[in-house]
Design a binder for these strands. Sequence first.
DNA 1: TTTTAATCGGACAAATATATCCGAATAAAA
DNA 2: TTTTATTCGGATATATTTGTCCGATTAAAA
Lengths: 144, 144
Amino acid sequence: MFSKACEYAIRATIYIARQSQEGLRASLVDISHEIDSPVAFTSKILQQLVKAGIIFSTRGQTGGFFMENSKIESKSVAEIVSAIDGDSIYTHCGLGLKECSGAEPCPVHEKFVEIREKLRSTLETTTISAMASSLKNGLTYLKR
Amino acid sequence: MFSKACEYAIRATIYIARQSQEGLRASLVDISHEIDSPVAFTSKILQQLVKAGIIFSTRGQTGGFFMENSKIESKSVAEIVSAIDGDSIYTHCGLGLKECSGAEPCPVHEKFVEIREKLRSTLETTTISAMASSLKNGLTYLKR
DNA sequence: TTTTAATCGGACAAATATATCCGAATAAAA
DNA sequence: TTTTATTCGGATATATTTGTCCGATTAAAA
Ligand code: SF4
Ligand code: SF4
């Protein structure tokens, strides 16, 4: 469904949000350890999230990654996904055709559209906050 | 959603089915031309489908690929997908975790399961026949 | 029997995704 | 000011997916 990079991004963001809610910054190595991801690769992904305005970072000693409370509440999982994987997940045809969605649909088109729309609304309505609070409740589902 | 190989496999199977219904065999180059796919790569994929028992092939002059009418009716798109991509599409967690589906689900788990099940039932209930007959009705949706 | 036209199978090549390395930049602490 | 701990950014490496090449095999046609 998502690329590995995107999976790491989602897990990392949830962890960062959780730490930020406690007033703490998360360092790269902490994050990688907590979500069980390769450190250097995770670094690249976090940089993308910073550029996308989803998380913040500060350099230097005591630096790290954090997330404003307002963004924890407002940002959805969908925004992470589109920052990393783009929107191909919503637009790409199941059979790999460039475009034919409109005029003469194949038998699965309507169902595909339905599934994609359900996925989209799921991702768009699920906030980082919602993901983080289930973590808060003692679940350790970020490590695999 | 699917790998390129899988997309080619679906399109190729539909074309082969359509030709078989007309009593014709489809050659590799015909298929690749009709579905707009790289010839040699398509060859590998068709071999996989043959091994999976979805299509048949004969070698030598006048050889080619074909599909029994009974299989055109009985085989679903799901069987093509699992032959090429396996069943990761149904089992893989959205966040890339190895296993956690049961005990302590994350907020999106139920919705993910729902989406995956809808996808599964869509693929399982859509026969090659159904895909082929919409092609029969004058649509040329196999080329992109 | 020879030629021709097709799939099969293995090795190879290119493109993309995933992952690593390391020095530069930054900022706090010593 | 120097040291230390951190992110940033570019180059590189590895793995996987996608794609190519070509000879072997097969079977019909000439
Ligand atoms: S009609 Fe079928 S082939 Fe065309 S875009 Fe929709 S799902 Fe893809
Ligand atoms: S609960 Fe969430 S993280 Fe766990 S398998 Fe389900 S979707 Fe994945």
